[in-house]
Design a protein around this nucleic acid. Structure first.
Length: 222
DNA sequence: AAGTGGTTCAACCGCCGACAT
DNA sequence: GATGTCGGCGGTTGAACCACT
């Protein structure tokens, strides 16, 4: 049973999600009314799933709750993740606060699959200065180009991560980051295929987040 | 078509801190 | 203060899927 279901069991009118956020979580001893609600629910629905509360919670948070965003990360989201990871490290839940509708789990998966894979294929240590330079000098500028191209291509799209409700991306502590303007980071963002760049990078070779890197005898995708 | 290896991502695990008793 | 419970977090696993031979 999810939180919203519990809140409507009393026969009250359904609670809007905005209101839901403002309702404080009760702790401590259960009241008679709460016991009644729980008994009624189990009477109607049975004890239900052979799942732990922890498992149910995870399923709800990562997949079922309203406003969850599924699907591939946009260039803007990727840019923000990379930027935020430089600031917060592996604090995935913190990073997720800046990406509405995205969970810490999917961000973690993105980092561990796409980014680690890229580092491995380029034969860089994920924490090395060389890989950091690659990100700053090649990957991020390319993402920025894609974002700007998307802006030009689709003026009506609004990037959810740029809404006023989302915390601003924290300041980065590397000089190179200053080169990336707020204009790039705050504008509308959507993935669009981008043509081959003149430096030999072939980005967006698939409709999903998949890039090719050809150079120095290395060929990879991330 | 079948086998194999690589990739993705949802789910699980273990730890830790907060809180109630 | 001691103990137990629970939620949140980051790390890890494994099933499903995909690409290639």
């Amino acid at each position: 049973m999810d939180v919203k279901e519990m809140k409507t069991l009393n026969g009250d009118i359904p609670i809007h999600e905005e209101e839901e956020e403002s309702i404080s979580i009760r702790k401590g001893a259960w009241s008679y009314e709460e016991d009644s609600i729980l008994i009624n629910y189990v009477t109607i629905h049975g004890q239900g799933l052979k799942r732990t509360g922890k498992s149910c919670r995870l399923r709800w948070l990562n997949y079922l709750r309203p406003n969850i965003r599924l699907g591939n990360f946009t260039p803007g989201e990727q840019l923000r993740i990379i930027q935020l990871h430089c600031f917060y490290g592996n604090r995935w839940s913190k990073i997720a606060e800046y990406l509405p509708g995205r969970t810490d789990n999917v961000i973690k998966n993105f980092w561990r699959t796409r980014v680690h894979k890229l580092a491995k294929q380029l034969k860089y240590d994920i924490n090395s200065a060389e890989f950091r330079d690659f990100i700053i000098n090649i990957w991020l500028p390319t993402l920025s180009e894609q974002i700007l191209a998307s802006k030009a291509h689709n003026c009506n799209y609004i990037d959810p991560s740029s809404s006023d409700d989302v915390p601003k991306t924290p300041p980065l502590q590397m000089d190179s980051w200053a080169e990336f303007s707020e204009d790039v980071l705050s504008g509308p963002v959507e993935a669009h295929p981008v043509s081959v760049l003149d430096n030999g990078l072939d980005f967006f070779s698939s409709p999903f987040i998949s890039y090719g890197f050809h150079g120095n005898g290395k060929s990879t995708q991330f």
